[in-house]
Each structure stands twice: as C-alpha cells, then as structure tokens.
Simulated assay, not measured.
Amino acid sequence: MTTNQLNALFVDDQNLPWEQVAEGVKRKIMTYDANLMMVKVAFETGGIGTPHSHYHTQMSYVASGAFSITIGDEIRTVRTGDAYYIPPNVWHGAVCEEAGVLVDIFTPMREDFV
C-alpha cells in the first residue's frame, strides 16, 4: 500500500500493483480513507469470490464481465453496467461466468485489506 492511496485525490491505475487473492481473482486498492474504500477486483472466468460476511456496507459496480452473485438467499446474474448492494453482516459471494472486473465500495474502509 502506498501512502498516495490514502486520501488520494487522483489515482493512476497503471501504477497500482495487483494482489492475487485466490485462483483466478486479483484485486487492487484504488483509494480510501477511514470511512470509505474503493477496490478493483479482476476475475478470470470461473474465479470465485469465496462466500463470506463482514460488518461493512458494500456496493459493487460491474465494470465488465458477468457474475453469479449470491446475497443472503438470493442468487442473480449481473453483467456490465449492473450494480448491487450488500448490507452489513449478510453472507455473500461471487462466481465469475465471463471474465471481468468488479469495483467494490466499502464503508467503513476494510482494515483487513491494508
């Protein structure tokens, strides 16, 4: 994590490193402060965002690709241009159906990512 990502007014995506988080899944922290965090997550087809829950509120935008998203007991396929909301402490996960990128927003920021 570079200090320019904390409270960054502008972020140069090309200079940020990817972090491998699972087979077929990598992420980069775009910018954050104590209250808000933006994370880009790239998936290969078949990549899995392991089901989990956390106390953060999350909203995600599908920048590209197609994903089967589970939120609680509901499963939907989302595609480029779609978005979804995950309330705090709700079980959720993702399976990539077509390689793509999700942009995740968390409040408060994910301390466990830094």
Results as ranks from 00 to 15, higher is better:
70 T>E: 10
23 E>D: 15
94 A>M: 08
37 M>G: 08
110 R>T: 05
34 A>R: 11
102 L>K: 00
110 R>I: 05
18 W>P: 09
98 E>K: 11
1 M>T: 11
84 Y>T: 06
63 A>W: 11
42 A>Y: 02
47 G>T: 05
19 E>G: 06
86 I>V: 15
60 S>D: 04
22 A>D: 14
53 S>I: 03
95 V>S: 04
72 G>R: 09
24 G>K: 01
107 T>W: 00
41 V>T: 15
16 L>W: 02
83 A>Y: 08
53 S>E: 12
27 R>K: 11
100 G>V: 10
49 G>K: 02
40 K>V: 11
29 I>L: 13
92 H>W: 00
51 P>T: 08
76 R>W: 02
61 Y>D: 07
53 S>Q: 12
44 E>V: 10
9 L>G: 14
58 Q>T: 06
56 H>T: 07
15 N>F: 00
86 I>F: 07
34 A>M: 11
22 A>N: 11
39 V>T: 12
2 T>L: 05
68 S>C: 13
51 P>Q: 00
86 I>C: 13
8 A>L: 08
36 L>C: 15
27 R>Q: 10
91 W>T: 04
89 N>R: 09
23 E>R: 04
55 Y>S: 15
90 V>I: 15
55 Y>A: 14
14 Q>M: 09
37 M>D: 07
4 N>I: 12
28 K>E: 01
10 F>Q: 07
5 Q>I: 09
87 P>L: 01
41 V>K: 01
26 K>R: 13
74 E>H: 08
96 C>D: 05
12 D>P: 13
16 L>F: 03
18 W>V: 05
29 I>D: 02
66 A>W: 01
4 N>V: 12
106 F>G: 04
108 P>N: 01
92 H>A: 06
78 V>P: 12
90 V>A: 06
9 L>Q: 10
17 P>L: 06
9 L>D: 11
51 P>L: 05
114 V>L: 14
91 W>I: 08
65 G>Y: 01
67 F>E: 04
31 T>H: 08
84 Y>Q: 05
56 H>E: 15
40 K>P: 13
45 T>M: 06
7 N>C: 10
60 S>F: 04
35 N>D: 13
12 D>H: 06
16 L>R: 00
100 G>P: 09
92 H>E: 00
114 V>Y: 02
84 Y>F: 15
63 A>R: 10
11 V>H: 00
86 I>G: 09
55 Y>D: 14
10 F>K: 05
47 G>M: 01
92 H>Q: 07
10 F>L: 13
81 G>M: 08
87 P>W: 00
100 G>S: 09
9 L>V: 08
39 V>W: 02
72 G>N: 07
75 I>V: 15
83 A>P: 10
110 R>G: 06
1 M>C: 05
49 G>L: 09
108 P>S: 01
84 Y>N: 07
105 I>K: 00
111 E>T: 07
108 P>F: 00
80 T>E: 15
31 T>P: 11
93 G>K: 02
106 F>P: 12
57 T>M: 13
92 H>M: 02
16 L>S: 06
88 P>E: 03
31 T>K: 04
